[in-house]
């Protein structure tokens, strides 16, 4: 993507940066939730979009980030910032391990997707049973709103931090897409045999992709922990985040750096609106998400980003 193509995204990010200053608490809450999903989706996009390895189990990385961050603080009294750094590294480690086990066995396509789902479920059930995670009661972090604790009295500050994370990963994605690593990811996505013949170590490339992807999604998990200060196994390792991460990317525009952000914001806005309109019908937003996924795959396989560029071509 050319730097000019990113302009709408940068304008959008700048506009969002104004929300904490003028927006209500509700709008800030909405934005933070959407940004956490956007970050997780950006992680998914690095593996699924750039490298073509579709995962149904990004909850494994989100949950690991969230839990390591929370457990280190609650059980071992580690500083929140340090805990977050360790959590991101742990997420990358889990990503590498899952990647090593499944890619080395040659799992691709739907087989890879299913094995990631299985890993995430194993982690969810284990976290639900293990004493260290607080089991089914979950884990509550002590409220102590100081910057040193990665907690803030003002929601706005936290919102800006989440926005910064998203912007940084956006920059990282653009950098990867334009360089050698991105070319290697694309080669592996398009044709593994041809990639091999051109000197690309396919396994190493996939492991790089899944570790990076997992680290970014784990960072989203850390943000979740620090914002909501409560975790249980169904939040951290639940399939909701796996689904929202991949849905945001497919709706927003797969393998484009800005796609996941557009997608996450659009989906969340739509989810909120539906919940407002169809009040009392539980799960109506999930039904809608399913319909949107079908529509996106059928009519806009390149997502909102693809629609936008098609529109631009049509208009001028």
């Amino acid at each position: 993507m050319s730097p000019r193509g990113l302009m709408p995204m940068l304008i959008l990010l700048a506009a969002l940066a104004l929300v904490p200053a003028f927006g209500s608490n509700t709008s800030i809450n909405f934005l933070v939730s959407a940004l956490i999903v956007a970050l997780a989706a950006q992680g998914w996009n690095l593996l699924g979009g750039f490298c073509g390895q579709f995962s149904f189990g990004h909850a494994a990385f989100f949950g690991t980030g969230a839990y390591v961050d929370a457990v280190l603080q609650a059980r071992y009294g580690v500083n929140a910032w340090a805990a977050s750094a360790v959590a991101i590294a742990a997420g990358a480690g889990v990503g590498w391990l899952i990647g090593f086990l499944s890619f080395r066995a040659g799992l691709r396509g739907s087989y890879f997707a299913l094995i990631t789902l299985a890993f995430a479920e194993v982690l969810r059930i284990s976290a639900n049973a293990a004493p260290i995670t607080g089991g089914a009661t979950g884990l509550l972090l002590k409220l102590d709103a100081r910057a040193a604790n990665f907690q803030f009295a003002s929601r706005g500050v936290f919102c800006l931090i989440a926005l910064t994370c998203v912007a940084l990963v956006l920059a990282l994605s653009v950098w990867i897409a334009r360089g050698r690593l991105g070319a290697q990811f694309a080669a592996v996505r398009e044709n593994e045999d041809a990639a091999r013949a051109l000197g690309i170590d396919v396994l190493a490339t996939k492991l790089r992709a899944i570790s990076l992807s997992a680290a970014v999604t784990a960072a989203a998990g850390c943000l979740y922990t620090q914002y909501f200060l409560y975790l249980d196994a169904n939040i951290a390792y639940g399939s909701w985040i796996s689904v929202e991460a991949l849905l945001a990317v497919i709706v927003g525009g797969i393998s484009t750096p800005a796609g996941p952000i557009f997608g996450a914001l659009a989906l969340h806005a739509l989810g909120e609106v539906t919940r407002l309109i169809a009040r009392g019908v539980t799960g109506i937003d999930l039904v809608l998400f399913g319909l949107i996924l079908i529509a996106a795959i059928a009519f806009a396989p390149t997502g909102l980003a693809g629609l936008a560029s098609r529109l631009r071509r049509a208009l001028g």
Binding site: A186, A187, R189, E190, N191, D193, A194, A197, L198
Partner: peptide, 13 residues
Amino acid sequence: SRTFQIVQPFAGL
């Protein structure tokens, strides 16, 4: 370096 008898382009690029 090799080429393939059945061509293997990176079709999306």
